[in-house]
Amino acid sequence: MSDATIEVAGLRKRYGSTTALDGMTFDAVPGRVTGFVGPNGAGKSTTMRIILGLHSADAGQARIGGRPYRSLRYPLRSLGALLDASALHPARSGRNHLLWLAQSQGLGRRRVDEVIELVGLAAAGRRAAGGYSLGMRQRLGIAAALLGDPPAIMLDEPFNGMDPEGIVWLRGFLRALAGERRAVLVSSHLMSELQGMADHVVVVGRGRVIADSSVADLIAAASGDRVLVRTGAPREAAAALVAAGAEVTPASQNRLGVRAMAAERIAEVLAAGGVPFSELAPHRATLEEAYFDLTGDAVEYRAAPTEVTP
């Protein structure tokens, strides 16, 4: 297996008057899990369909290991994909679903046995797929993506409908795939699903990339070196800290957010001014908070504006 990067360069796509993709550009490189995040309608599924050659782009291109998908002779050996776990004929058994896919790639029954074992579906393999739970369908879809032992894997919303046990299994599984130097691209509309699993995130909104960075950098940027101070005398505390050169914003009734000053120095200043305080906590943003910071104005389909406390 040689390395294969999923390259997406300048994709544009319109459906009638709707712009689905507006210059989508990113890479998913070998050896890491790349999270592909954005609200519904941001263009994630469209991008994936274009990568697979299912939809044609108006401009730009997508390549797998340097080659357009449609030029691959046995494409599932280069890129394994799961777009829609429910895309099954309900009367066909899971095993036969994998078998025709395998045969189309010049692979045999032995490989079908291997992947069905790998995802833990061996017992249900001979039953009609129409009777599978959504979680079982996700596993079957992942088995299909792995059939060709591809260097690149792409999953669209794989956690949907999975039970907690399945989610834990899949996270570990995808990390292991990245550990084998595969490029793993996982889309989600929930950043929290990617926490602790993705190395890198591509955040998209309105058909283009908003942020493309490592998870560590993203969280650091969102955290912004803020320290939360819990105090019974917020007004006095704020006055003392501002006088000492810090930036202060009220966080809630008896909490203050403090920037531009380390926690130790805050403690000194408050103690010196005789202001009581009960807690000093360096703030660390979650990936989800970072995501909301980024996508606040990129969400197209949100029910109603909700109050966000900083």
């Binding site: 369909r49 697979l52 050659g53 299912l54 998908y69 449609r70 691959l72 494409p75 599932l76 994909a81 777009l83 829609d84 429910s86 895309a87 099954l88 004929h89 309900p90 896919l101 189309s104 790639q105 299909a144």
Partner: peptide
């Protein structure tokens, strides 16, 4: 038509893009 009905056509055409 069932391939279209169940979305399986995408699996078929991504397995064999020609």
């Amino acid at each position: 038509t069932t391939e279209y009905r169940y979305g399986l056509i995408r699996g078929t055409l991504s397995a064999r893009p020609r």
